[in-house]
Simulated scan of single mutants.
Amino acid sequence: MRKPKLPLKRSKDSTYLSRDLKDNVEYYCMMLIPLALIFVFSYLPMSGIVIAFQNYSVGKPFFGKGVEWVGLEHFKTFVSSYYFPRILRNTLLMNIMCLVFGFWIPIVFAITLNEIRNSKFRKFTQTVSYMPNFISTVVVVGMFLSFIADDGIITQLLRLLGMEAKSLNTSQAAFPWYYTLLNIWKSFGWNSILFLASISSIDPTLYESADLDGATRMQKIRYITFPSMLPTIIIQLIFAMGGMLGSNSDMILLLYNSAVLETADVIGTYVYRETLMGGMYSYGTAAGLLMGLFSFTLVYIANRTARKHMDYSIW
């Protein structure tokens, strides 16, 4: 008995692909612009990573004659820098504070919103919580700095309460705390959207069955709502672990000053000063690439741990 030739299978596959392309041509056309934007702004600039291994200056080519290759010299300089322990400590400290004090707030907020029975009040609360995310960081920081100045509202209120209050702008110990609080306030409402979406996908019959069994509201949250949210929580936690070496550098640049550099300077602000203000483009690229590799390592470890113990993971 003769076996069918391989080209027949390829012909069937090509027929299926052509039919699929014809049936979904509108969707593929819609994907062209986003894919082009991702390619132009995300993948093409990656060729600039090579300057981390060069002594690059503006006007020089990335490849060809005149390129001075230095290998891992900039990486060694960054790790052995006098400022490296300080910026690494500050970056980890502020991200750990945001993780410990801020990660659970969107989860609790989403569960609380889901339990509100008055739809108008729920929508109003949801809208108000989203608003800080759409306010410019420059505006938010400008208002906050005026509140904690010597004659600011917060400082004067503390004095009225009998406390010896002075401007928090120059307090090194206070900077990580008010950065964390400001960052949480600005983002918790927006971050709760994913958790609200996971709650809305829960089968209503589960709650109906729980009501028939006489379950209380807290029991339904514990045994139905929270377990249904767990995959989303784990995935968000993995991403948060990957961002441990990153910070909201824009906010920190607007908040900090020379008096609080000891506790406010992070990797992002240091790279900004050395790269854009100091013109050390190769050095800044090497620092960013090294932190990117460390972040990927953290994501990989967190993902593998979650897959092993919780059976939820990104890949």
Rank of each mutant, 00 (worst) to 15 (best):
R2L: 07
P4Q: 07
R10I: 13
D13F: 07
S18T: 14
K22P: 05
N24T: 11
E26P: 00
Y28T: 06
M31E: 05
L37T: 04
L37K: 06
L37C: 13
I38G: 01
S42R: 12
S42V: 10
Y43I: 15
L44I: 15
P45Q: 09
I49D: 08
K60T: 03
W69N: 12
V70C: 13
K76L: 14
V79M: 08
S80G: 05
S81E: 08
Y82F: 14
R86T: 14
R86W: 06
N90R: 08
T91F: 01
I96V: 14
A110G: 02
L113Q: 01
N114M: 05
R122I: 00
Q126C: 01
T127R: 06
V128S: 00
Y130I: 08
V138Q: 09
L145F: 04
S146D: 13
G152T: 05
G152A: 07
I153P: 06
T155R: 12
T155L: 10
Q156M: 10
S167D: 09
N191D: 11
F195A: 07
F195D: 09
D203F: 10
P204D: 06
G214S: 11
Q219L: 08
I221Y: 04
Y223M: 08
T225Y: 01
P231M: 00
I234S: 02
I234W: 00
L237Q: 00
M241D: 01
M241C: 15
D250W: 06
L253R: 15
N257E: 12
N257K: 00
V260S: 04
A264H: 10
V266M: 05
Y270K: 13
Y272Q: 11
G284Q: 08
G292P: 05
F296L: 15
N303E: 03
R307K: 14
S313C: 09
